[in-house]
C-alpha cells in the first residue's frame, strides 16, 4: 500500500463513519495495510507500519488520540514476533492479534458506559461539553435503564459540535438544553455533575479535549461539582504537557494551519485540563483517580 492509499483509506473512514473515533480509524487502516502488505521481513513490515502511522498523524484531521492508539497497536501485535516461525505465519499471528485488539477497543466504549451507569441518579442535571461518543453511549445506556436525568449541552464553538450532541440526545428522547459556551458559569450552579469525554489522557492524569473543557473544569471545581471524564483506555498517551503552551502544535491546530509560522491568530481547537480539576476518570480499566493514569501507563509500557 502506498502512502497516498493509506491516507485515502483513513480519510475515507473518518468522513463516512462518524461513529468511529480517529484512533479506531487509524488502527483499521493499519490492519488493512497489514493484510495487503507485500513485505518479506518483519523489519520491513515494521517500517511500513511506522511510515503509515506517520502519514496518518500528518493528515488534516484532528489526531490528538491517534498516536497513543497506534503505539498501543504496534506494541500489541509485535508481541507476536517469534523467531522460529516463518514470516507468513508470523504475519497471520499479527493479524489475529490485531483483530483481537480492535475488538477490545470497540468493546471499550460499552464497558465505560456500564461502569458509569450507577452515577446516573434519578433527577440529576448533567452538564456536558462538545460531542463525545462515550458520553453519548453512557447516556444512551442510562436512559434505556429507565434513569431520569436532564442534560445541558454547551454549543462548543467553533465547530458547533455541541449542536450535534444535542440532536443525538433529542433523538434518544433524553431531555436536554443547549446552552452557550459563555453560559457555563451561569448554568454551573444548577447542575449536579459535569461529564465530558477526552481526546487524549496524558500521563499526569489530565486530559486534552475540545477547547472549553478547561474552562468548564475550573468552573466546576469552583462550584464544587464533580467533573467526570469518560474515556477509553487506548487514549492514554505517554506525554506530559506542563501547561497549554507545552501542547504540541499539531494537536492544537489542524493540518491546514499548523505549518503556518504565525499561529498568533489561529484558534486552538483543544486545551489541556489539569488533573487537579478532574474528579474521576471512567475507563474500561475501571474508575480511576487522575493519579492512577500514570500507573496504568507504566504498567503498559514498561
Amino acid at each position: 500500500m502506498l502512502k497516498e492509499e493509506v491516507s485515502q483509506y483513513f480519510s475515507n473512514i473518518m468522513e463516512k463513519e462518524s461513529d468511529i473515533s480517529a484512533s479506531i480509524a487509524a488502527i483499521t487502516t493499519l490492519m488493512k495495510l497489514l493484510e495487503h502488505d507485500k513485505s518479506e521481513t518483519v523489519q520491513e513490515l515494521d517500517l511500513n507500519l511506522q511510515s503509515a502511522v506517520e502519514v496518518i498523524t500528518n493528515s488534516s484531521f484532528r489526531i490528538t488520540g491517534v498516536s497513543s492508539g497506534c503505539a498501543l497497536f504496534m506494541r500489541f501485535i509485535t508481541f507476536a514476533k517469534l523467531d522460529n516461525i516463518t514470516f507468513a505465519e508470523c504475519k497471520k499471528v499479527m493479524l489475529d492479534r490485531g483483530k483481537v485488539f480492535l475488538k477490545k477497543l470497540t468493546d471499550a466504549r460499552n464497558k465505560v458506559a456500564k461502569i458509569t451507569l450507577p452515577f446516573f441518579v434519578d433527577g440529576t442535571n448533567i452538564l456536558t461539553h462538545s460531542k463525545s461518543r462515550v458520553v453519548l453511549e453512557a447516556m444512551k445506556l442510562a436512559v434505556n435503564s429507565q434513569k431520569r436525568f436532564h442534560v445541558f449541552v454547551s454549543e462548543s464553538s467553533p465547530d458547533k459540535s455541541g449542536i450535534e450532541m444535542y440532536d443525538c440526545l433529542k433523538a434518544l428522547d433524553i431531555p436536554c438544553t443547549l446552552i452557550l459556551d459563555s453560559a457555563v458559569g451561569y448554568i454551573m450552579e444548577r447542575v449536579d455533575m459535569v461529564m465530558v469525554g477526552a481526546e487524549c489522557v496524558v500521563e499526569s492524569g489530565g486530559i486534552i479535549n475540545k477547547i472549553g473543557s478547561c474552562t468548564m473544569a475550573i468552573c466546576a471545581k469552583e462550584f464544587k461539582k464533580p467533573f467526570y471524564v469518560l474515556t477509553e483506555s487506548y487514549k492514554f498517551s505517554r506525554m506530559y504537557p506542563l501547561n497549554q503552551k507545552d501542547l504540541p502544535n499539531n494537536f492544537k491546530y489542524n493540518g491546514n494551519n499548523s505549518n503556518d509560522d504565525n499561529l498568533l491568530h489561529a484558534h486552538p481547537s483543544v486545551d489541556y485540563t489539569h488533573p487537579s480539576y478532574i474528579s474521576l476518570l471512567f475507563t474500561d480499566l475501571g474508575i480511576l483517580m487522575p493519579s492512577a493514569v500514570s500507573d496504568e501507563l507504566i504498567k503498559l509500557y514498561l
Binding site: E203, S204, G205, R238, Y240, P275, S291, S294, D295, L297, I298, Y301, L302
Partner: peptide, 8 residues
C-alpha cells in the same frame, strides 16, 4: 523512565 507525576 519518563516524565511522571510525583504520585507515581
Amino acid at each position: 523512565i519518563a516524565i511522571l507525576p510525583c504520585t507515581s
